[in-house]
Design a protein around this nucleic acid. Sequence first.
DNA 1: TTCATTGCAAAAGCTTTGCATGTGT
DNA 2: ACACATGCAAAGCTTTTGCAATGAA
Lengths: 140, 140
Amino acid sequence: MEKQKFRDYVSTKGLKLTKERDEILNEILAAEGHFEPEELFISLKTKGSKVSRASVYRTIPLLIESGLIEEVERIDKHSHYEKVLGKQHHDHMICMRCGKVIEFFSPTLEMLQSELCQKENFNGVRHNLEILGYCDKCNL
Amino acid sequence: MEKQKFRDYVSTKGLKLTKERDEILNEILAAEGHFEPEELFISLKTKGSKVSRASVYRTIPLLIESGLIEEVERIDKHSHYEKVLGKQHHDHMICMRCGKVIEFFSPTLEMLQSELCQKENFNGVRHNLEILGYCDKCNL
DNA sequence: TTCATTGCAAAAGCTTTGCATGTGT
DNA sequence: ACACATGCAAAGCTTTTGCAATGAA
């Protein structure tokens, strides 16, 4: 389970499992899809949490290192993250009108990328593909 | 030629072709690869130009709208752009150690993406693929 | 007890903007 | 002359950091 994964990471690193970190993690696990730091901070605040913005920003790198969340493409000025959960890797289509995000995964695409990396003698570790356009509803 | 394209855009929009805009455009056309606003400002400054940072930031959107440059993936906190010139679309592999950027293009990849979009009823307009990893030199 | 962590507020870094002045057309 | 542009400096936003107080182990 995700929380155990975080506990393990924290103790391995000699860090501490604080109430703040727990609240932040819970909020992320409870939410859907992508999130932004400020958004996360606000929703915690709204629920009566006393966590500070600083703690939110300081906790995010830990969650990334523990493999619970990932940074995704930035479509505007600030950072976006998403849970990793059991989810396999996937890419995104983003509607330029309504902002809808479609997640998709294509083994063929993954394979093709490996080939392209080989051709360039590049050791690909991870990738982000973001397709911008219009979703069915906005394309009318 | 690129400069004509910009002149056309400017006059069509009822804007003015100023010395500052011209200097900025020249600097971009003269430079190689990607650039960042601050970098551009500094190199203009170094060459004795009196263009202000504000004008650099104000000119970039115009260059994008006129189709001369594009915004590329953000690998860190600030914005990155690159010339479009006659260059065809391409994607990037970015070395996480030395920062080297390899540009590549794959028709197969493009085609595959169109298929994926169709499958999702998504009208894809453009995309960004960024593969992170290690280049041959850094992979030793 | 000890050392990581917290909140706060200040600082930092990038980008935008208000305003008075300047300048293409 | 009339808009649009410019430079400057101030303001905006997101994110980071110093520091004294707090708290987990």
